[in-house]
Design a protein around this nucleic acid. Structure first.
Lengths: 255, 255
DNA sequence: GACCGCTACTTGTCTAGACATCTACACCGC
DNA sequence: GCGGTGTAGATGTCTAGACAAGTAGCGGTC
């Protein structure tokens, strides 16, 4: 009397989606379909990490190679980004920041069909640092208003900006505290229109605070953009210093 | 004293391209590069079959899975077409036959940057079959001139055509034997211009002779096009019956 | 704090074998 | 000639194990 042969592979765990073996559709194809649906449903969310290949293989009750085949297919479709040594991540569409003369944060985010929001981190009067004073056309140490702000798209941080305004704009600090956007606050103090005069882009690694606020590891570079905004008369109304997390954000120059 | 451990895999045969193991580039990537070069150099030629995966794996001294990975990459690039149960074939660009009123064989081929040529298989006077007589507007059994021709592009067969002409065109048979093209022969007997009045397309499997001439297996369908050409006055000057091998040739309708 | 090395975890590659599935073709019987 | 059947050979899928190589974080050292 012989014992029944053990199944060739471990059965998938109870709650898992059932894969049909010995039917027409390949296992890796079925797995890709399941993952595609889950991603479309929002879990895991864009940017989130998937379980490791070994864990997913266990979940579906298949060999790691079979599972890899499914992940490769999804990566080719652009749904996943697989990073060696780190894991597989649900692709999040890159926010192209198209630098134009009149680009406003909320318009930028809305153009990507996301909901813009923001959090004021700091709002105070201070002495302008040297680089800022030069940008604003002031003497070093002159008084300036500083607004530090975290920009979010659909709740995910996409920018960390410092805005310096010359102190000559009376009432701006109160307006910034009350208004929903910088554009609106400037209008409240008489600056109807402004445009970007200059933008300079660089990159560096974030410090701990920046990494925490933007929710990125400290090894991911930031794009750092300095810009100068002027009013219709050409007077400087703002010096901005923006930090964007890569690769979530890319900057595009529009001539 | 121990014997040296045997190599994990068989060494590639003497004449084969050397692959560098334990260097930065993956084996499958090196193999893909070698095959890409060979295809670019023309051997194997477009349409030709590559050796089977097992044979190629032996040639490069790798496992079949490793070789498959290289083939898959090339297939994704469009350089190969892999067909289950048949083999891997160097992709050949499909000849789109754009049906226009004045499409001539040589122009068609030249538009694809290939060199047109042809071989006359038959040239004789015969009694027109019923279908042909109807196309030519003659009584069944009326005398007609038949030209059967194999058309080639860069030496590869792309069409097999029967051309029927009404016997009223005196001297055409001699002209066809002497001229390089039908257009030229017709001009020699006074038909300066002609245009396609009608084309009807169907498909069927080839018989043994057709398969042999077009160098395709008998299981590959032929595109069959009947067409009627008329001169400036509207009189029928030719009834054509063309057979094209799929998928080498596709027919495109131009409105 | 900065730097280094260690370690755990992750993805990438290669090998090996088994079986499924499809194609082409020869063969046979009618 | 026609159609079915068998067979060899091709690609497709899955499992299994091993090792390479990259990443991140921890802890020790200076």
């Amino acid at each position: 009397m012989t014992v029944a042969a053990p199944p060739r592979v471990a059965a998938p765990p109870p709650g898992a989606a059932p894969l049909s073996r010995d039917e027409g559709e390949a296992l890796w194809h079925q797995i890709a379909r399941v993952l595609r649906q889950e991603i479309a449903a929002g879990t895991p969310a864009p940017g989130a990490r998937l379980p490791a290949e070994a864990a997913l293989a266990t979940r579906f009750g298949v060999n790691r190679h079979t599972l890899r085949r499914a992940l490769e297919a999804l990566a080719r479709e652009g749904l996943l980004k697989i990073e060696r040594g780190r894991g597989s991540f649900v692709a999040e569409d890159v926010l192209d920041y198209a630098i134009g003369a009149r680009t406003r944060f909320s318009e930028w985010i809305r153009r990507h069909n996301k909901e813009p929001s923001g959090r004021i981190l700091r709002l105070e009067e201070c002495a302008a640092p040297v680089a800022v004073a030069r940008g604003l056309g002031l003497r070093a140490g002159a008084r300036a208003i500083l607004l530090e702000r975290l920009g979010l798209a659909d709740g995910r941080p996409v920018s960390l900006t410092e805005h310096y305004f010359p102190a000559r704009l009376r009432g701006l600090r109160a307006a910034l505290a009350a208004a929903a956007s910088i554009t609106e606050a400037l209008r409240a103090v008489g600056v109807d229109d402004y445009r970007r005069q200059l933008t300079r882009v660089s990159a560096r690694l974030p410090d701990a605070a920046e990494a925490g606020l933007l929710r990125i590891p400290r090894t991911r570079p930031l794009l750092v953009a300095e810009n100068v905004n002027v009013d219709r008369a050409g007077a400087v109304v703002e010096f901005g210093l923006a930090r964007y997390p890569t690769p979530r954000v890319q900057i595009v120059f529009e001539p």
